[in-house]
């Protein structure tokens, strides 16, 4: 006795407009980071209690539950902790060339920085590979001042 769907009911269209919301964001850690990126440097915030270094830096250690504000500089090179190869963009449209998107632990940081790894075939990518940021010629203080990461031969 297979289930049979009944007749269709009425459908009406509706919309929630997200642009009517007013979100208030802290964002100090991102400002710190983007200011530093003007000089091709990367800055985060360190917790005095546990030593965690966050990039971008929060004002609160998420492990110790205390306020933190010690600014530290980290390296623009690091280790790929995980990655994926995107065949489609965020809207699902196919990409012309696959994009290696990596989670990178920058040397001196404990959080993971996201970046595209360029210059190798997807088949050659691996967890644990070392990468280095390639900076824009004229950085303007934007997260996009890092153009991409390239594989580092050490």
């Amino acid at each position: 006795m297979a289930f049979e769907m009944g007749p269709e009911t009425r459908q009406v269209q509706g919309m929630w407009d997200i642009s009517t919301y007013r979100y208030r964001m802290e964002g100090g850690g991102v400002r710190l980071l983007t200011e530093a990126m003007k000089e091709k440097r990367i800055k985060g915030v360190r917790c005095n209690e546990c030593g965690m270094v966050y990039v971008p830096g929060p004002t609160y250690c998420r492990k110790c539950f205390v306020d933190i504000d010690e600014v530290v500089e980290v390296e623009d090179r690091g280790t790929v902790m995980s990655y994926c190869v995107e065949l489609a963009d965020v809207r699902g449209n196919p990409r012309e060339t696959p994009l290696i998107s990596a989670m990178i632990e920058l040397d001196g940081a404990d959080s993971w920085f996201v970046g595209a790894v360029v210059g190798i075939e997807p088949e050659e990518a691996s967890v644990g590979m070392r990468v280095k940021a390639v900076w824009a010629e004229n950085p303007v203080g934007s997260l996009s001042d890092i153009e991409y990461f390239e594989v580092l031969e050490e």
């Binding site: 964002g27 991102v30 400002r31 980071l33 983007t34 902790m81 995980s82 990655y83 994926c84 995107e86 065949l87 489609a88 963009d89 965020v90 699902g92 990409r95 994009l99 998107s101 989670m103 920085f113 996201v114 970046g115 595209a116 967890v127 934007s142 997260l143 996009s144 001042d145 890092i146 153009e147 991409y148």
Partner: peptide, 29 residues
């Protein structure tokens, strides 16, 4: 606002294909 580009992967942009994109990092790890 600070330069993240969700389409090119620049500026810490990530998440190709919505939740599948995020899950793929988990799968790879």
């Amino acid at each position: 606002q600070h330069g993240m580009d969700l389409f090119s992967g620049k500026g810490m942009g990530f998440g190709g294909g919505g939740s599948t994109g995020a899950a793929s990092y988990q799968a790879m790890s």
